[in-house]
Simulated scan of single mutants.
Amino acid sequence: MVERSCAELIAEATAAPVDGWGFDWLDGRATEERPPWGYARQVADRMATVAAALDIDTGGGEVLAEVPQPPPLLLATEAWPPNVAVARRTLRRVGGRVVQVAPRSRLPFRDAGFDLVTSRHPVDTDWAEIARVLRPGGRYLSQQIGAGTMRELSEAVLGPLPPPATRHTAQAVAAARTAGLDVVRLERATLRAVFHDVGAVVWFLRKVVWTVPDFDVDRYRPQLERLHARIRAEGAFVARSRRFLIEAVRPAPGDVGSA
């Protein structure tokens, strides 16, 4: 098999679409361990028991599309226009409706309108808004990106970085409690991510933009060429993704909080 050059791999990855929040393009080129708690299954189980649910930062709607028993009212929000179109097509088959929102805006829904709010890898978590739209007794379930995720990849491109200042679980728990929610579950996982060619790295950085916030192929071509040489020499580039699962409840009147 003829090995492809660094330039060919980069060009292919640069031309590939990154709409939605699926990662099928990486099949055979990169792998990432899954968290042990099974987020999609957790969401499906809860969706089957509620009347009204909201998914925040739905991406392309990939998680909700797999829910076998959606609630009568299923809404989702998304801020990135290319994802909005994808999510609307994806969620049509489960009766979900996608509302386009501005980044970091208030949720355009009435108070206490949902039994369940979910979010997989939210850009930001507005705990006060989540508490506002939850009904008393309602739950928020979210799989979030942990502090220092994919740091090895970030530093391979950007060089040494200071310790991460955000996305720590203690910060999430404190913010949830400040908003009046009781945190009833918190789990953490560190997961192995393996990139088998530099094209997979480029595509990932284009899609997961917070890994290298100013990523541009031309700006970082020397670093990408070094990564290409390293992958050829070592067989793969290994990084660590960090995730946590958090579940919080809006107390009903008279409840004794668990915070």
Rank of each mutant, 00 (worst) to 15 (best):
I130A: 04
H168Y: 07
D255A: 15
F195H: 12
T211K: 02
R120Y: 04
T14N: 11
P82F: 12
R34S: 14
H196V: 01
P136Q: 12
S105R: 07
L224N: 09
L54R: 02
R97C: 08
Y39C: 05
V198W: 01
G20E: 05
I145R: 13
P251W: 07
F109M: 14
V184G: 02
R88W: 05
R93E: 14
I10V: 15
F244Q: 13
T125W: 09
A248I: 04
Y220E: 09
G28Q: 03
I56C: 13
A236T: 05
P160C: 03
A200E: 00
L91P: 11
Q144K: 07
T178D: 14
R139F: 00
V184M: 00
I231S: 05
A131N: 10
V209G: 03
V194A: 11
Q143V: 02
R132F: 10
F237C: 11
G180C: 05
A156I: 09
R135Y: 05
R185F: 00
T169K: 00
R221D: 12
P164A: 05
P162A: 09
V99F: 12
A233V: 02
D214T: 13
T118A: 06
L73V: 15
F237G: 11
P82I: 12
S119D: 09
R230Q: 14
Q100R: 13
V212A: 10
V208L: 13
P160F: 00
T166Q: 13
M150Y: 14
R250G: 04
R232T: 09
A175D: 15
A252G: 15
T149K: 01
N83L: 03
S258I: 02
A200Q: 04
A179F: 08
G59Y: 09
G113N: 07
G96K: 05
K207C: 03
H228Y: 15
R177H: 13
A176C: 13
C6T: 10
A174K: 11
T49H: 12
T211E: 03
H121W: 15
E129D: 15
A102Q: 15
S119K: 07
V63R: 01
T14W: 11
I56S: 10
L54F: 02
V133G: 03
G148W: 10
G257W: 11
D126A: 13
P72Q: 12
V101E: 05
H121P: 00
A76S: 09
R167F: 09
A30C: 13
E234G: 00
R226H: 12
V2R: 15
S154G: 13
A174Y: 02
D57L: 04
D115A: 08
F114T: 11
